[in-house]
Design a protein around this nucleic acid. Sequence first.
DNA 1: TGACTATGACTGACTAGTCAGTCATATTTA
DNA 2: TAAATATGACTGACTAGTCAGTCATAGTCA
Lengths: 227, 227
Amino acid sequence: MMKKSTKLANKSAQSAEPASARGEVPASNRAARAQERRAAIVEAAMEEFIARGFAATRLDDIAKRAGVAKGTIYLHFKDKESMFEELVRIVIVPVVARLTALPPPTGSVRDLIEAFASNFLKEVIGTRRGDLVRLIVAEGPRFPAVADFYYREVVSRGIAAMRALIELGIARGEIREKDLARYPQILVAPAMIAVIWQSLFARHAPLDAQDMLRVHLDLIFGERRTT
Amino acid sequence: MMKKSTKLANKSAQSAEPASARGEVPASNRAARAQERRAAIVEAAMEEFIARGFAATRLDDIAKRAGVAKGTIYLHFKDKESMFEELVRIVIVPVVARLTALPPPTGSVRDLIEAFASNFLKEVIGTRRGDLVRLIVAEGPRFPAVADFYYREVVSRGIAAMRALIELGIARGEIREKDLARYPQILVAPAMIAVIWQSLFARHAPLDAQDMLRVHLDLIFGERRTT
DNA sequence: TGACTATGACTGACTAGTCAGTCATATTTA
DNA sequence: TAAATATGACTGACTAGTCAGTCATAGTCA
């Protein structure tokens, strides 16, 4: 049973990713149905965990939101805690996969990084995924497994990729500050701050993240000549 | 029987009291004692909330840590929620007070900002206060009152102060990037990232925050001529 | 000063309620 | 129909908040 659900989990990670199965075709076979349910649970759990945090989230609410009985959740996940951990994996893996599919190294380093930034802007800042980042920051200390996973799969890879880009930029003479390669965090920091800002302070003082990131890149690469 | 057990309980509660009134002056009057207890509760609650988050923190644990009965907490705070909100205020206000006592504008803007940074490094990054920042990021969305307060008292003031410094730097020709004044967040971002990094990833990859901030300032002001 | 009373800070057992996880039963599928 | 799934009522552990009772201290009086 454990095995089975795990297997299903892998499969569903894909279909679980975007929208859930709301009022769709009854799904011919059992496996497909199970997938849909699982996806609905993942989607619902995501919403609830983001909105309330781990401890304050009720499984009853997740079940209700997913349109499923509470017992059904336990057919797919061992318990609340491992559910949360698995959830983070399920949602993050496709993101990593997409990021790993790097755009071809054409054009200037600045263009490359700008492409990254605009992608990040569209896909993360101010979206559910952005909230997930905040959730990980919030729960990380209480879920070492989550923090470890996130560091290994996202942070360390991201840092390495940024470092490579920075070194390329330095080699090509686009970036002056050579020490920047030692702290790719500096390159990423404003983007992360934008994520947090949007979920905490957007109502007090909306932040034009796109413009801010542009200014930050100007700082690193020097002002743009072209318009 | 009730009497007896209560009496014994009292005794044990006292001897169990580790934190506050150990070896201190017994506090002459009641008011002073009450203050001590209140302080002990605040301290204990801080630790517990930081370690477990709001929802997962038990008032019994706070009471035990403070060396106080649970009922005593309710003599000082209305309930768990308002306790948390008040707590943030209590801890943050003195910090704001200290920051408001700005150092005199002597020397270069870079020196000024460097003084700020080194202060931040010492007083926030990797300390209990740093954890508090993370706690606010974590609980903010569920405690609008806390997020509001934090924005009003800390963020907006900090941003304003940084903006003033940046404008001064631009006026004096120390800072090239004029648009930076529009986004003081960029100046502060690496410091915030350092705070978060320390509490989430320090064990995986320790971060030399001091050096990183130096590099970041080099980026903004240009490399230092002096060693 | 010493005895006696009043005060209110403090206690912790208790109540009422919540919620993760279970499992006997019902439903659906092949 | 047998097997596989799904359900949701139920259980027991746990906890926020209460309150009747205690007792060290402050205040008063002789």
